[in-house]
């Protein structure tokens, strides 16, 4: 029931292809051994990237989880911003947000707009 447990699950998933296959087949079964509360399980299963960022999941862990779900880069960034807008500032950890919700930080080069990741 802690940020630690959420991150531990994601750490294991991110580095273990067999666990990724099992998770694709049955998300709840793979989550069962981890000590997670309902909010955390729901955020993982959705996946609610914005909620996970709000909970304080380290971005280096969350980024890989988003890639596993085939979430495109700009969409990943937007989902985190939406999470902050919806749920409030990051609760704990070092991955707080320091820019404004509508700031454009890393625009895609004009010649490549519309390209997918």
């Amino acid at each position: 029931m802690t940020l630690y447990a959420v991150q531990k699950f994601l750490y294991e998933l991110n580095r273990t292809p067999a666990m990724q296959s099992a998770y694709t087949a049955d998300r709840h079964a793979v989550l069962e051994p981890f000590d997670l509360n309902d909010e955390e399980v729901a955020a993982l299963v959705e996946p609610d990237i914005g909620k996970l960022f709000h909970l304080g999941v380290n971005g280096q862990i969350l980024m890989h989880f988003a890639a596993f779900h085939q979430i495109e880069w700009q969409d990943y960034l937007q989902r985190m911003r939406d999470g902050i807008a919806t749920y409030g500032p990051v609760r704990e950890g070092v991955y707080a947000m320091t820019t404004g919700l509508d700031d454009v930080i890393a625009p895609v080069h004009s010649s490549s707009k519309g390209a997918s990741s």
Partner: peptide
């Protein structure tokens, strides 16, 4: 850098 956060690119 502020990697893997909404601040990525700062």
């Amino acid at each position: 850098h502020w990697p893997a956060t909404p601040d990525s690119g700062k």
